[in-house]
Design a protein around this nucleic acid. Structure first.
Lengths: 239, 239
DNA sequence: ACCGCTATCGTGGTATACCATATATGAACG
DNA sequence: CGTTCATATATGGTATACCACGATAGCGGT
């Protein structure tokens, strides 16, 4: 819980005269953004982590009243990040294995649709940029920098989704990726998986470049469904 | 606006001693559900419709304070049903054509994934039930009862999605279908479209029955993407 | 010592008062 | 008559006080 509180206090310090958009956002939205990133940066699957939030504490930490915080919490609850139990408390949710798999399947559905749309609408220049995301990994094998690879991995998928051009899909997958990111430690630790992952990615890029709609869509779906199967087999630590 | 208000007042009348779940839901959730159905039942694409909501009016209509109403409105805003403009008002959103198409594409992605999952996990009995949804239309052509057909159409898609068994996908598509339903008048009025639609549905059912994963998925996706294309061509009234 | 009841407290839910500001209104001035 | 500026009003945003209710701990009885 402390990790969240400390993160949160950053904003209490007034912006040092960088008055660009003149603080046009409401306190609710600020609290929402802050809490969301705080939750995303918390390793919620660490059994030692305290997952209870306290409205009154957040009130103090952010220096605002309960109202905007409660509204922000309502939004986070609807997005499935927290759950509020009347007269008990507010808890960050640990996803069950089933839920995690469903999220990855949904992600597969949306990203494969994005790949389809990308073959139909994206420009050659945009598709070409995908290759640059892996430049650093073509010189040395990914096994040497697994941590960075995890980020690059997410960056690749985000890029494919963006290529689809559907703002709806882009927005919907943002939360999914946040949730899935929370267990990434457990999904890439085996480096043969990382190696195969890169090969998959390159194949997807090729399919996009060739404007092969069905292939790009199919490869993308299969690649992400493979992750779902992997989680199913190896992530017993999930409820 | 009046249509919403009247609908809303139903709940003001106390439940006539049908105290089943003892009103376990919070006022926020009640207001949320009520406003959502009210919006769904409003023909928001009728140019004459007043689309402005008033917090204070809703307060009176529901007999509660602004707090739970504001929280409910926050949720609806995040779901894309309304937009609140500071010091201007709260407005029900009319989706632009592009947004509507993106929603249908997303729907296609999710329903086709549900069809895939259905071929892998659903029971024969569950799949068999799909056919019953169209019993009434096999005796007489759909052109004779277009209104009922529209509902049956949505029921079919909902059933396929449910067959997939993914609660995530089920929840995510609920809102999509609500949004798309708002323009259904304009999408089925041509009855040859309704006829083709039935044929498509039957093919999808057959693919599910044969456990042909790729075919069921592909047909489902294509069928819904066809709707997107249709909207693109024929729904100029959308922004 | 153990069980049960009661009082207190902690918590989320709700109501309400207050605030800031964009818009509307109208009076005064040209 | 038109323009402009000041005042009023409407509206969403925020703060705060209050409430209901479950939990828990402490006290008393057995």
């Amino acid at each position: 819980m402390n990790s969240i509180v400390t993160l949160v206090q950053r904003t209490t310090s007034a912006t040092p005269l960088a008055l660009a958009p003149l603080n046009a956002t409401s306190l609710r939205d600020q609290a929402y953004a802050l809490l969301k990133t705080a939750i995303a940066d918390t390793d919620i699957y660490d059994p030692k982590q305290e997952l209870r939030l306290d409205e009154r504490q957040l009130t103090e930490a952010l220096g605002v009243s309960r109202t905007p915080i409660r509204e922000a919490l309502s939004l986070l609850e609807q997005e499935g990040f927290i759950r509020t139990v009347p007269r008990r408390g507010i808890y960050i949710i640990r996803k069950s294995k089933r839920e995690m798999i469903e999220m990855i399947q949904m992600w597969a559905a949306l990203e494969s649709m994005a790949a389809r749309l990308a073959t139909l609408n994206a420009s050659n220049a945009e598709i070409a940029k995908l290759r640059h995301l892996f430049d650093e990994f073509q010189t040395s094998p990914p096994s040497e920098h697994l941590c960075e690879y995890s980020d690059a991995n997410i960056a690749f998928h985000t890029a494919v989704i963006a290529l689809g051009g559907s703002q709806m899909i882009i927005d919907a997958t943002k939360n999914l990726l946040l949730h899935v990111r929370a267990i990434r430690r457990a999904t890439i630790t085996q480096m043969d998986r990382a190696a195969r992952s890169i090969i998959d990615h390159l194949k997807i890029i090729e399919a996009l470049e060739h404007r092969d709609t069905e292939l790009a869509e199919g490869l993308t779906r299969k690649h992400t469904l493979d992750l779902a199967a992997h989680v199913d087999r190896h992530c017993g630590f999930l409820g």
